[in-house]
Design a protein around this nucleic acid. Structure first.
Lengths: 334, 334
DNA sequence: CTGAAAGCGCTTACAG
DNA sequence: CTGAAAGCGCTTACAG
């Protein structure tokens, strides 16, 4: 163990150094209550000199304050979309004067780790909860929502009893489908993660498929690796499909690589629209309204913390925009 | 305030429901010490039924346990590199059996917010600290390092008194410079953030410039927006510079857009190498060894926590690899 | 303006 | 195997 250093310094030590009581030291350090300016200064100086760091655990326990912090449960930040959501949430929280304590969850098929993480956050007595993962079903979330204000953000799918600020993926699916159909595609591949792999992507696939009226859809449900299912998709292209619709942009990239490698051509679309070089790559995708959802979620949580308890849970779906690049062309012109 | 719900349930309530003492309830719930199986079961059942969630603050305060968690201070996760570093750290921490509590810092010119965040993390009595931001100078970090094991990760620049697992940016600079020179470029633009904007990028610029022996370098120091300085860089290209070397990939993208818009051509290079579509874009860049640094940092921290106190702080620099794409060609062939 | 005392919710020796 | 008591480090009325 490294030298315990200043962490061993308690307020008692500071108080003793100055010759006052703990209560006085507390007042001096928190700047609350009546206190002589000179005393305050002496205490502050001593605290600084001793390297006093208040023990938050004790502070919050004693004050009963539910710590200003709000807990954020996030999924894998390696994905640009989650990284940006994370960042946007931070910005929004800072603007709202809230501190964020974050825990992330990697793969979590059964949702077990998420429940654990939620308990842990709750154990830290966060004032509110932001849930930005897709893998927990609402049923497991509800008990937590009963204990502390909770807002789900990003993914759709939310029980009517839980606040949610999400992306209107159904709308996004229609946006894409409309354009694909308008360009004459009637035989397409729909490539995306299976429900177990990513519930969010799975839902996107459903939304898109539903909107593709009159189109022959070969749906491929794959694993987490973006390259999964690409060979099968290419086979379908070779067999006549004119477009490969993906439920995420990284998958679209994998398809583009595959097409180039096999010398095939087909239209492609993705989903997310948050990668840096989208314009240069000419990707066709839907851009998720990340900032809007993040700000919406934080504002709603702030309102709930502020006492808006009577509000019925609401589910707000934010709409992004279609980005049409070179990868989507009229059927037959690719 | 939302219904306080089960958060109001204390261990006392559980104990009373079963008719045992708090001490017994504790033992039953933690599974420590001798306890009758039947008692344990009854307590567990009651806890579940009442929705008991242990107050972590009280638990850790009472047990003196410095909570297993380690604190991570991170910079803006919107940047793909940081998002991936975050993710890699999570993975490594999970593998090492450590929990991560993360706070992020946005722009923080003076390093004030970072110091605050560090104090806050320390207040939570984390067992160790991972610092993955660039903006704090070592002098401000040292006091914290004296209190709790600390490892700096990612950015170079570290006092000899602080453990660091970083990227060997000097080496990366040489890697790039060598290739640029080998391809005949003798008049280049070096485009990157000013020291105030991003210390890391600034250092990269220094490293690169130093390695560009015999090359005329026009250095442009810009603000945070990737598009900053691009017009000036293009002017330099129009005036004869054959390459634009950037200290980050997003800047390189901005330059590529600018070149296309103005119908100019020049070689370009970037830095980071972590964007999803690099290969498709044909970017030239250095790929940061994110996973290696992350694993190294977590392992080292784990070792420190495990009692390796005698180790002198070490500074390990991880080396990534050069990625040469279409954007870097022999001078005159662009 | 300042101090003594009680208490936050939990755990941990110490006795039984 | 179980309970009473003391204590973790801090704060907050309540008296002075």
């Amino acid at each position: 163990m490294a030298d315990q250093g200043a962490l061993g310094v308690r307020i008692e030590d500071v108080a003793r150094a100055v010759g006052v009581s703990r209560a006085t030291a507390t007042r001096a350090l928190r700047g609350q209550g009546r206190i002589a300016a000179s005393t305050r200064e002496r205490v502050q100086r001593a605290a600084e000199q001793l390297g006093y760091v208040p023990n938050l655990m004790a502070t919050e326990l004693a004050s009963g304050a539910r710590g200003g912090a709000i807990g954020l449960m996030l999924r894998d930040a390696a994905n640009p979309v989650y990284g940006q959501l994370f960042s946007a949430l931070e910005v929004a929280a800072a603007a709202a004067g809230l501190e964020l304590v974050t825990v992330t969850i990697g793969a979590d098929p059964g949702g077990e780790r998420q429940v654990l993480a939620l308990r842990r956050l709750l154990g830290m007595r966060v004032a509110g909860l932001l849930v930005a993962t897709g893998g927990v079903d609402s049923a497991r979330l509800e008990p937590f929502a009963a204990e502390v204000p909770m807002v789900r953000v990003g993914r759709p799918e939310a029980s009517p009893r839980i606040h949610a600020e999400s992306y209107d993926e159904e709308w996004h699916g229609r946006l894409l489908a409309e354009r694909v159909v308008a360009l004459g595609h009637r035989d397409v591949v729909l490539l995306g993660a299976s429900a177990e792999t990513s519930y969010g992507e799975h839902r996107r696939g459903d939304d898109l498929e539903r909107a593709l009226a009159g189109v022959a859809v070969r749906r491929l449900r794959t694993g987490p690796d973006p390259a999964d299912g690409v060979p099968a998709a290419l086979d379908a292209v070779a067999a006549g499909a004119s477009a490969v619709l993906c439920t995420s942009d990284v998958r679209q990239l994998a398809v583009l690589r595959g097409l180039a490698a096999r010398g095939l051509s087909a239209s492609t679309t993705g989903w997310d629209g948050r990668m840096p070089g989208i314009d240069l790559l000419g990707l066709t995708t839907v851009r998720m309204p990340v900032e809007e959802a993040a700000t919406g979620a934080v504002d709603r949580l702030a309102a709930l913390l502020g006492g808006e308890e009577l509000t019925l849970p609401t589910h707000r779906g934010w709409r992004g925009e279609l980005v049409v690049g070179r990868t989507l062309t009229e059927r037959g012109t690719a």
